[in-house]
Amino acid sequence: MKKISHAFLLFSLFMLTSCFQTAQNHTRGVYMLLDTSGTYAEEIQKAQSIINYLLGTLQPGDTMVVARIDSGSFSEKDIVAKATFDSRPSVANKQKRVFLQTIQDFASTVKGSKYTDISGGLLQGVEFLNEKGVGKKVILIYSDLQEELPKGHVRDFPMELSGFVVVALNVTKLRGDIKDPKQYLDRIEYWRDKVESNRGEWKVINDLDRLESIFE
């Protein structure tokens, strides 16, 4: 009898301590930037498999956004699809189906843009995810990382990337990279430096078969 009451006391203590930990946020937010500039627009079909993987992986309560990178990406207008999945699995599944349809429609109608404003899109993603207040913040950049800004656009500013994981996906080699691979390495290094200097975490995933490392 005494032992049962001790066990009950321990269980109560465990529950109490657990309740005090409720401040911990377990939700995940994924903001995916799709490069639609120039030849990279052809890669958009491949991006769909990544989106499908994410839709299958994200859980109720998580947030997912897909936005395009064009000439001026620091804008809500560039958001293609966004959803915060309902806590009920059945409703979340319906939301995922709608999301999937929206992406399929976008992929069939997408047109290439003249410039590539990656920094603007990154900033938009940071603002969006901060506003959502998700626990784990991930920004995926599906691009060759070659930034080309229209004249007059200023993107040389500090960003607060603390708590963000920025993942570059499918960083393709450009024609110049084949001649001089240093350009490719420099490009990646530039973005790594940009993210890490703003206290963010940087990852590059070129092998789309190991997408699970996005959330590791």
């Binding site: 657990s18 309740c19 930990q21 109720p60 309560g61 806590s87």
Partner: peptide, 17 residues
């Protein structure tokens, strides 16, 4: 466990659970 998430929601946590 899975159908319970339909009733009480699958996004709330108490501690790590």
């Amino acid at each position: 466990a899975l159908p319970m998430s339909e009733m009480v929601g699958g996004a709330s946590f108490i501690g790590p659970f």
